[in-house]
């Protein structure tokens, strides 16, 4: 085993070199075929992408990321709130989005709890309630066993109705959530003392990527209620939310890169969590290789195209 650094990346064995060699020679083969004007079966392309994602998972590549301003804004907001502030985290996603946004949900919860904020969980996706179990198990039960349900955090669960739910809670929380997910009455939950509506919250964070999601939170809660709103979303929708930043949206974690930036920044600020799971940072290894492969595909595809076009002109 060899431990060292390549291009500033911490590499724990020679596997990464092997991976790059295999993928590199494969791409050269593809380029050679393109130059000879030969087509490639789509399954070869599929196999390529499979290998370039799977192989880096077998080796450990660790990166550190510098948080971009839009990500740092969320971190700074949680950091600047006084302990005991009420932070609502809405799980608006399903298993399909989970690899991207579950790491965000986990690290944001960890950050809010380490700052001793009161965390209110809810979901606009029914599947959010299933995904919330992951955070309760992997973050709260594992790292914060002293935090109590109803006092330090509360799980209000899912409500059907999308925007209809938001339209009610922006002015009356109890009307929509008369109890928490375990049927404990709203008035008996210590954490919710003094919370009449979303306007009484210090920060709202929506984690999602579908509909309803962060956009609906901005339209139905953030703007009408003047509630500071931030979010973490799947990469597919992240560019669409930039127009709301910074006036209507406090900050945004976009895709797995946003999550990795937040994880890096959090670990840097709280060294006691140095050995916490960092799924987003780990995912950036395969992500990097896959991006190189896809860019190579585009280049090779274009070489093929320009060759054929030139041939066509000659004819």
């Amino acid at each position: 085993m060899w431990n060292g650094h390549i291009w500033g990346m911490k590499v724990h064995n020679l596997g990464v070199i092997l991976v790059l060699l295999v993928i590199g020679s494969g791409l050269l083969w593809l380029l050679a075929r393109a130059l000879r004007g030969k087509e490639v079966d789509r399954r070869v392309i599929f196999a390529f992408i499979f290998v370039s994602v799977a192989a880096p998972l077998l080796i450990t590549m660790t990166f550190t990321f510098r948080a971009t301003p839009i990500v740092e804004a969320v971190f700074d907001k949680i950091e600047s709130l006084p302990p005991g502030s009420h932070v609502l985290i809405s799980y608006d996603f399903d298993p399909a989005m989970a690899p991207e946004v579950q790491p965000m949900a986990n690290v944001l919860t960890r950050h809010a709890l380490v700052r001793n904020h009161k965390v209110i969980f809810m979901c606009l996706f029914a599947t959010g309630q299933g995904q919330l179990n992951v955070t309760l198990r992997d973050v709260i039960a594992a790292d914060f066993p002293d935090k109590l349900d109803g006092i330090d955090y509360v799980n209000l669960g899912y409500k059907a109705g999308n925007e209809g739910v938001l339209n009610v809670i922006v002015s009356d929380f109890k009307k929509m959530f008369p109890t928490d997910v375990n049927t404990v009455p709203f008035d008996s939950i210590e954490l919710l003392d003094g919370i009449k509506s979303c306007k009484d919250l210090d920060l709202v964070i929506s984690i999602g990527g579908g509909l309803p999601g962060l956009k609906e939170w901005i339209l139905f809660v953030g703007d009408p209620g003047g509630v500071p709103t931030a979010g973490g979303v799947a990469a597919v929708v992240a560019p669409q939310l930039y127009p709301y930043y910074p006036r209507q949206l406090l900050g945004l974690l976009g895709g797995v890169k946003g999550a990795a930036e937040y994880e890096s920044h959090f670990r840097e600020r709280y060294p006691q969590f140095d050995d916490m799971p960092t799924p987003a940072i780990i995912m950036m290894g395969p992500q990097t290789i896959a991006h190189i492969v896809i860019m190579s595909f585009i280049v090779i595809g274009n070489i093929l195209y320009f060759r054929e076009r030139r041939k066509g002109r000659r004819v």
């Binding site: 490639v40 789509r42 392309i45 599929f46 390529f48 992408i49 499979f50 994602v53 399903d94 298993p95 399909a96 989005m97 989970a98 690899p99 599947t127 299933g130 896959a290 492969v293 896809i294 595909f297 585009i298 090779i300 595809g301 274009n302 195209y305």
Partner: peptide, 27 residues
């Protein structure tokens, strides 16, 4: 539910890669 839902969308990675090779041209 989780493996089925997640894998269904994960397939799109393959199609994005295929589209990059076949359709993404600087025309």
């Amino acid at each position: 539910f989780k493996p089925l839902g997640a894998t269904m969308y994960a397939l799109l990675a393959f199609f994005v890669a295929s589209a990059s090779y076949r359709a993404f041209r600087a025309k």
